[in-house]
Design a protein around this nucleic acid. Structure first.
Length: 582
DNA sequence: GCCGTTTTCGGCCCGACTGTTTTCAGTCG
C-alpha cells in the first residue's frame, strides 16, 4: 500500500481547502462559486467518518461529496509530496496578514482586498493604525462609521471566544428564553432554541433564539436589556443581535405565529442542510425561505405553522434536528429509511460511574439511589483502578471490600441492581492496572487510557487494541481522551480500533460529560456502519452528573444510533449475556 | 470547482441589517 509522505489529518486537509477558498476569493482569481466549492469540500472532509489518508490510498477521493477531479488532484499532491504548489503560489501573491483581516467582524473579502490594494495594508495592526489615522474613510464605500466599526471589530477580536461547549451554551440559552417568557407572558406566543444548539452540536459559535409574536419591538427591548447582555450589535424589527458578558453572540428572531414552521426550520440549520433542502424545493417548483414556501411560477405563498408541514410539502418525513448536517439525511428521508434514533427514555441503565471510593463526590449508596430515582434499572460502579495517581484508585484488596458493600446494598432492592465494575487504567505499554484474576470477578470492566496521550499513533493505537483484546475488558471508555477546548485527544487510529471492537464484539463508550462527548458524532456514525455496539455513559462523579446523559444521547443521535445499537437500552440479562459470551 | 432520470454546459439558496448610498454593495448567517 502506498504511504503518504506525512500523515495528514482530515482537519488539516480541510483547513487547507478553507485557506484556498479564502485566498482565491481575496485575490479574485476565481468567482463566488469556486470559492464556495472549496469551502464545501473543506466542510465535508472535516466531517468525514474515515481518515482521508485511507480514502486517498483506496483512490476514493472523488466519492467525497464536493470533491471532484481538481480538488482530488490537489489532495493527491499533498499526500505524495507534503506540499501544494497551487497553494504556495497563492500565498506568494496574497500576504497572510490580509487573510487575518477576514476574522474581524464586518470585514469580508471585498474590504480586505480594498484595504490591501488601495492602501497597501497587509495585517490587522496596520489596519488599526490606518483607521486611527482616519485613512479608511477616504475609500469608496467607506465612511466615518465604517471606520469606527472596524476599530471596534479589532478590539472585539480578542474577547470573542472560540466555539464554546454545548454544556455551557445550552443552559444559558434556555435561561434567556425563560427570562423573556417571564417578562412578556402575554406577548410571546411561542419560543424555542434554534441553531446549532438545537441540533446539539458539541460546541456552538453563537446562539439562535426564535420567538413568535405579533408585536416584535417590546421583545427586542426586553432581550437587549437582559442582564447577561453586554452590548447590542444590531437591532431591527425581525432580528436583534447582542454580545453577552462572556463574549458569546446571541441572535433573536421574532416572527408571526403562522410562519413558525418555515422559520424554525430555517433557523435550526444547518446551513448545508438548508441549502440542500432549498435545492430540492426548487426542483419541485418551490422557493423556500424562513417566511414561506412560494410557487416559483405563480408566486402563490404557502405558510407553514409547523416544521412537519415544511418537510411534508417537500415529500419528506420530519427530520430530527440532530441529523440536519447534509450528511445523507435528506436522501435517507426520501427513501423512507431515516433511523429511529435512540432517546433518553430508551435507556435502562447507567454504565460507568464513580463514588468516593475513588474520585467521586458522593457515596456509593447515594449514587445508586440517584440512578434508581431517575428510573434506571441498573448502575455500574466503575471507580478508578490504581495506576492513575491522583484519583485514589482501587487495588485488588479495596475492590474486594467494595464488592461486599455492593452485595449488601443489592439486597435492598428487587427492581434495581448495582453492577460491580472498575474503570481500569490502560498503562503506557498496553497492560492493565489490575491483574486478570481481580478483573475476572467483576460484572463489567471498563478500560480507559488517561495518561501518555501524546504518544505516537502506533503506540497509542496498540494500547487501546491490547486493552480490547484482554478477555476481561468489556467497554472502552472515552476512546480518544479529548477534552473540548483543552486537549485535542490522542492520535489514535480510530478506524483500526473500531474494526477491532466490531471483530471482538466489544463495547465502545459515548461519554456524556459535556467536555468529552467521546466518541464524537462522526465516530459514532462510523461505529454504526461497521456494527460496533456502544454504551452511552454519564461517567458521573456526583448525582447531578447523571443528568449529563442528555448530551451523550444527543451525540449518539447525531451519529444515527438506534436503540438496538446501544447496550444500555437492553434488559440487564441480555447485556450480561452479551458480555459473557465474547 | 462541482454536478447531472430535465443538463457533460449552465446552472449553483435566500433574506436582514448597516452604511453609504439616491438604488445598492458588503457582510453575515
Amino acid at each position: 500500500m502506498i504511504e503518504p509522505v506525512r500523515w495528514w489529518s482530515n482537519a488539516e486537509i480541510a483547513d487547507i481547502m478553507d485557506r484556498i477558498g479564502d485566498l482565491v476569493e481575496v485575490s479574485e482569481k476565481e468567482g463566488p462559486f469556486q470559492v464556495r466549492a472549496y469551502h464545501r469540500a473543506a466542510d465535508n472532509i472535516r466531517h468525514l467518518e474515515e481518515d482521508i489518508v485511507r480514502v486517498w490510498q483506496d483512490d476514493r477521493l472523488e466519492n467525497i461529496p464536493g470533491v471532484g477531479k481538481a480538488i482530488a488532484k490537489k489532495i493527491d499532491e499533498l499526500m505524495r509530496t507534503g506540499h501544494l504548489r497551487f497553494l504556495e503560489n497563492l500565498e506568494q501573491e496574497v500576504p497572510s496578514g490580509v487573510l487575518d483581516m477576514l476574522s474581524i467582524p464586518g470585514v469580508g473579502s471585498k474590504k480586505a482586498r480594498l484595504f490591501w490594494q488601495s492602501l497597501g495594508i497587509t495585517g490587522v495592526e496596520e489596519l488599526k493604525k490606518a483607521a486611527e489615522e482616519g485613512k479608511l474613510r477616504t475609500l469608496p464605500g467607506m465612511g466615518k462609521k465604517s471606520e469606527q466599526r472596524i476599530l471596534e471589530g479589532i478590539a472585539a477580536l480578542q474577547s470573542i471566544p472560540d466555539r464554546i461547549p454545548l454544556g455551557i451554551a445550552r443552559p444559558l440559552a434556555l435561561g434567556m428564553l425563560d427570562a423573556l417568557r417571564e417578562a412578556l407572558p402575554d406577548v410571546i406566543l411561542k419560543s424555542e432554541l434554534a441553531g446549532s444548539a438545537r441540533r446539539w452540536r458539541e460546541t456552538v459559535g453563537d446562539l439562535d433564539l426564535l420567538v413568535a409574536a405579533t408585536d416584535p419591538m417590546p421583545i427586542m427591548d426586553a432581550f437587549s436589556n437582559l442582564h447577561q447582555v453586554k452590548e447590542v450589535l444590531l437591532k431591527g424589527e425581525t432580528k436583534t443581535s447582542v454580545r453577552l458578558q462572556n463574549g458569546l453572540q446571541v441572535d433573536l428572531r421574532v416572527l408571526p405565529l403562522e410562519r413558525w414552521g418555515t422559520a424554525l426550520q430555517y433557523f435550526t440549520g444547518s446551513k448545508a442542510h438548508n441549502v440542500a433542502l432549498r435545492g430540492l424545493a426548487l426542483d419541485m417548483g418551490w422557493s423556500l425561505s424562513e417566511y414561506a414556501l412560494k410557487r416559483t411560477d405563480t408566486g402563490e405563498e404557502r405558510l407553514c405553522t409547523t416544521e412537519e408541514e415544511v418537510y411534508e410539502l417537500l415529500g419528506l418525513p420530519w427530520i430530527p434536528p440532530e441529523l440536519r448536517e447534509d450528511r445523507g439525511e435528506i436522501q435517507a428521508a426520501q427513501e423512507k429509511r431515516l433511523p429511529r434514533l435512540v432517546e433518553v427514555s430508551d435507556l435502562r441503565g447507567q454504565l460507568h460511574g464513580h463514588s468516593d471510593w475513588s474520585d467521586g463526590r458522593a457515596t456509593l449508596e447515594e449514587m445508586a439511589e440517584a440512578a434508581r430515582s431517575r428510573g434506571y434499572e441498573y448502575f455500574l460502579i466503575s471507580d478508578h483502578s490504581v495506576g492513575l495517581g491522583m484519583t485514589n484508585g482501587l487495588d485488588a484488596g479495596r475492590l474486594r471490600e467494595q464488592r461486599k458493600l455492593i452485595d449488601s446494598l443489592n439486597r435492598r432492592w428487587s427492581d434495581f441492581r448495582i453492577l460491580a465494575g472498575i474503570e481500569v487504567e490502560v498503562k503506557a505499554d498496553g497492560s492493565l492496572g489490575l491483574p486478570d484474576e481481580a478483573l475476572a470477578e467483576l460484572d463489567v470492566v471498563v478500560a480507559a487510557v488517561h495518561t501518555g496521550l501524546n504518544q505516537d499513533r502506533k503506540t497509542l493505537t496498540h494500547r487501546a487494541i491490547a486493552a480490547l483484546r484482554n478477555p476481561n475488558v468489556d467497554i472502552l471508555a472515552h476512546p480518544t481522551g479529548r477534552l473540548l477546548g483543552k486537549r485535542k485527544g490522542g492520535d489514535f487510529d480510530m478506524e483500526a480500533i473500531l474494526q477491532e471492537a466490531a471483530h471482538l464484539g466489544k463495547i465502545v463508550e459515548v461519554n456524556s460529560q459535556p467536555s468529552r462527548l467521546d466518541l464524537n458524532d462522526v465516530n459514532v456514525r462510523r461505529a454504526m456502519e461497521i456494527g460496533v455496539r456502544i454504551s452511552i455513559s454519564s461517567d458521573a462523579h456526583r448525582p447531578s452528573d447523571l443528568d449529563n446523559i442528555v448530551y451523550g444521547v444527543a451525540t449518539a443521535r447525531r451519529g444515527w444510533a438506534e436503540p438496538e445499537n446501544v447496550v444500555n437500552t437492553w434488559p440487564l440479562r441480555r447485556l450480561l449475556e452479551w458480555i459473557k459470551r465474547k
